[in-house]
Design a protein around this nucleic acid. Sequence first.
DNA 1: ATGTTATTGATAATGGTTATCATTATATGA
DNA 2: TCATATAATGATAACCATTATCAATAACAT
Lengths: 154, 154
Amino acid sequence: MFNFSREETDKLKEQLKVKGYKLTPQRRAVLDILLENEGKHLSTEEIYDLVRSDCPEIGLATVYRTLQLLERIGAICRMNFDDGCNRYELVHKNEDHQHHHLICKSCGSVEEVEYDLLETLEKKVEEKYNFKIENHSVKFFGYCEKCRNNVNND
Amino acid sequence: MFNFSREETDKLKEQLKVKGYKLTPQRRAVLDILLENEGKHLSTEEIYDLVRSDCPEIGLATVYRTLQLLERIGAICRMNFDDGCNRYELVHKNEDHQHHHLICKSCGSVEEVEYDLLETLEKKVEEKYNFKIENHSVKFFGYCEKCRNNVNND
DNA sequence: ATGTTATTGATAATGGTTATCATTATATGA
DNA sequence: TCATATAATGATAACCATTATCAATAACAT
């Protein structure tokens, strides 16, 4: 229990201490679930369900609070896929921008696109509109390869 | 009353009839408000408040339903600025993609960016990821010129 | 070990949106 | 024009993700 990644836990502990927050078993358990489910874009409710198998006494409100906290300290980032709930993704070391996403309108799959394709565009926008970009949210909606092979959406 | 744009109203009437919907005073009033407030990204509640000066008996539920309907027939598009409510924008003739937006983290202003800058990126993404893009949602968060002049966020 | 203070869990409240349902209005065809 | 079928409306209850409240508990510094 709470033994997924000592390295990550130590890093979290460090980040929390700096800001005056405490490291609780609940917070460790939420982090572990996020580590175990990298790349899955879990919602708060989904995280709550998963974390309860390790930590059955945890309350839903604590999960909400923990996710807010982790977002505030920059450990995770929140994303909105317009499905009525917040979803979260671990922020990787050395990443200051989040990925962008390809969302399939047929099967709902979410694929991540590397950032570098967007870099040129951001520079152009900053110049043309004299706007200092700090972050972005980029979603492309369409049909993935698999779904285009099954039915004919092309 | 309900006399903003005969041309637009006729077009709406046409679009509604094709799908078997009826043209009601309430729907005309909502359309008029949207026409009068082009470029403002109004929320449902804001539209409700504005439309009541022309149409005081209209119910909030009707405004919600009308906006859903107008979105469904492609007359407006819904956007999510992560402020807890849906916002809407008229879809212009000959536009199949929505704009993208620059959202200022200081004053909250929303500026529209022309589509052409994104075109190259979309082509590259389609090729690289074999994904057929139908629509997108692109938001850049940062600081606008005015706010960067006032305080020093740069 | 102790005390300060953040955190927790349970639950009520919030707020945007949707569902329900009886009543009313629109479009259509006689 | 008028009657009729059916969609639309307004009022309001329900929904659901999220946030606020608050007394009890736990983490960390000393």
